[in-house]
């Protein structure tokens, strides 16, 4: 990994550790709070995942590793999409009492954002698979199906963050692909981009519960948006009271004393 990254990560870790040691509940905050445990439990895994990406998928990665990554993502996208679609039609393959269960993830925002990440990772491999004449049809079909499932996941998650992320990555990736292309291929790519954008936006406006969240017609959509503004206001109050912060995983306790949301 680059030295600057290791230095920056080490500095961030040192600051996080110091903030926990001078916090209100160092013991609990060191491990991290339920349900994320973003302390000694989870943070090493996050750093480990970045390290794996850098070592196995960095600039010198063999083509076989990149192929493995794309195949794994395609398989995960199909699994996530299948459960998402089942839940969207009212089935509950995994027991839950939530209105928006989140498919194979913890909540609907995670579901939508993961779908958008899968779209981001599959858009270019799908384009390349269809442009590469020697690519097997099964591989093309599998990757394309996976991309459709990833887009469907974003749509039926009804997550505004997920939809925004998917539209953004579509725009960025296609601009990066279109700019160096020949004029004939450029026209083709612009058409594909417009079609993909229409599928995403049109799909979101066609699915009733996604449309009502997007247009702010559902009470839950207004509530969750207002909730975020309240959290930001509470965070500003906590920060005004303690300019050095409350340490990693310390906001919950500090906010329960200051909260304006109760």
């Amino acid at each position: 990994m680059p030295r600057w990254f290791v230095a920056a990560a080490s500095a961030a870790l040192a600051v996080a550790l110091l903030s926990v040691l001078i916090s209100a509940a160092p013991g609990v905050q060191l491990w991290g709070r339920w349900p994320r445990y973003e302390g000694l439990v989870t943070l090493p895994v996050y750093f480990g995942a970045v390290w794996v990406g850098a070592r196995l998928l960095g600039p010198a990665a063999p083509a076989a590793s990149l192929r493995t990554l794309v195949r794994a993502i395609a398989t995960a996208a199909v699994a996530l999409g299948l459960v998402s679609l089942l839940e969207a039609v009212g089935a509950r393959p995994i027991a839950t009492d939530l209105a928006r269960p989140g498919s194979l993830t913890g909540n609907a925002t995670d579901q939508g954002v993961l779908g958008a990440i899968f779209c981001a990772m599959l858009i270019l491999p799908v384009l390349r698979a269809w442009a590469e004449p020697r690519k097997a049809f099964a591989e093309r079909a599998w990757l394309s199906t996976a991309l459709l499932f990833a887009a469907a996941t974003v749509i039926v998650s009804a997550s505004r963050a997920g939809l925004l992320a998917a539209v953004t990555v579509l725009g960025i990736l296609m601009v990066l692909e279109i700019v160096p292309s020949t004029s004939r291929r450029r026209l083709h790519l612009v058409g594909l981009t417009a079609l993909a954008g229409m599928v995403l936006i049109g799909g979101a406006l066609t699915v009733p519960f996604t449309r009502s969240r997007l247009l702010g017609a559902s009470p839950l959509s207004t509530q969750s948006l207002e909730g975020r503004f309240i959290f930001w206001s509470d965070a500003a109050d906590v920060l005004a009271e303690r300019p050095l912060g409350v340490g990693v995983s310390g906001f919950l306790n500090a906010n329960s004393r200051n909260s304006t949301s109760n």
Binding site: L69, I73, A76, A79, L80, I94, L104, L114
Partner: peptide
């Protein structure tokens, strides 16, 4: 690593 994102 990819499967971990959907594992439960």
């Amino acid at each position: 690593l990819v499967a971990s994102s959907i594992f439960f």
